[in-house]
């Protein structure tokens, strides 16, 4: 863009000023009205075993609103399953571009993290099955996990992005994943799911390692680009 063109564009603002009074609050007001009119994205399929229980007994199993725990378990499941695919994309990039400068060859580490994401997915399938829920159901939060990963998938699989740009997208996924496991553990604890709390604690430790390591790899890759 030439400064001359920008000058002429600004000149046009004076010649042809805004024709509708107001400001961006018009959008805010329209959004507010639409939110009040909206229907939910969808519902959580509650397992038959829960439907058949009397209220007091499923409260013991999953809290007052069993669909909340199922929804969040399904969300993590979807995120981990997508996470495996994100790692597949990162591995393809490493295969083409090589590792990042530094003491570690990142390929085996990324491969290990990918395999751990898969194990987390399996863990969640089993957790949902134990509750009598359908691990293949796309619950509302699972659906949104897919929507939120769309941009990351685009960056990671774009052949034009370099390793630093790719790792940056992966770090966003790992940061969200980390917070997601923390919340899930809290929910499992509240619902009295002690085995889940224990199993998920191991997953969270691994996710902590993923986030810290990816952050470190990203630093190496970016500094290498800088210097």
């Amino acid at each position: 863009m030439s400064p001359e063109d920008t000058k002429r564009q600004l000149e046009a603002n004076n010649l042809f000023p805004p024709d509708i009074p107001g400001d961006a609050s018009a959008i805010a007001e329209a959004r507010k009205q639409a939110i009040l009119d909206a229907e939910p994205i969808g519902s959580v399929p509650v397992p038959g075993s829960v439907k058949g229980m009397v209220k007091t007994s499923f409260q013991k199993v999953m809290g007052k609103n069993p669909e909340i725990l199922i929804d969040k378990l399904a969300e993590r499941l979807a995120f981990e399953r997508t996470g495996v695919r994100l790692y597949d994309g990162v591995l393809a990039k490493i295969a083409a571009l090589g590792s990042v400068p530094g003491p570690t060859d990142i390929q085996p580490v990324i491969q290990q993290f990918r395999d751990q994401e898969y194990q987390h997915f399996v863990l969640l399938v089993e957790a949902l099955e134990k509750l009598g829920a359908d691990p293949t159901a796309q619950t509302p939060c699972a659906d949104l996990a897919g929507v939120s990963a769309e941009g990351l998938m685009k960056i990671i699989t774009d052949p034009r992005t370099n390793l630093a740009q790719t790792l940056n997208a992966l770090l966003i996924a790992e940061a969200a994943d980390n917070a997601g496991w923390e919340l899930l553990i809290e929910l499992a604890r509240e619902a009295g799911q002690d085995q889940m709390v224990e199993d998920f604690g191991v997953a969270l430790e691994e996710e902590n390692e993923h986030m810290g390591t990816i952050k470190e790899f990203l630093k190496h890759a970016t500094v290498a680009d800088l210097l």
Binding site: T6, Q9, L10, P17, P18, G22, A24, S25, A26, I27
Partner: peptide, 19 residues
């Protein structure tokens, strides 16, 4: 009751780097 184009652009003036 509404014109979407008017809502989207109420008072909008383009500026380099956004409003």
């Amino acid at each position: 009751p509404v014109v979407p184009a008017d809502i989207a652009s109420a008072g909008y003036e383009w500026h380099p780097g956004t409003e």
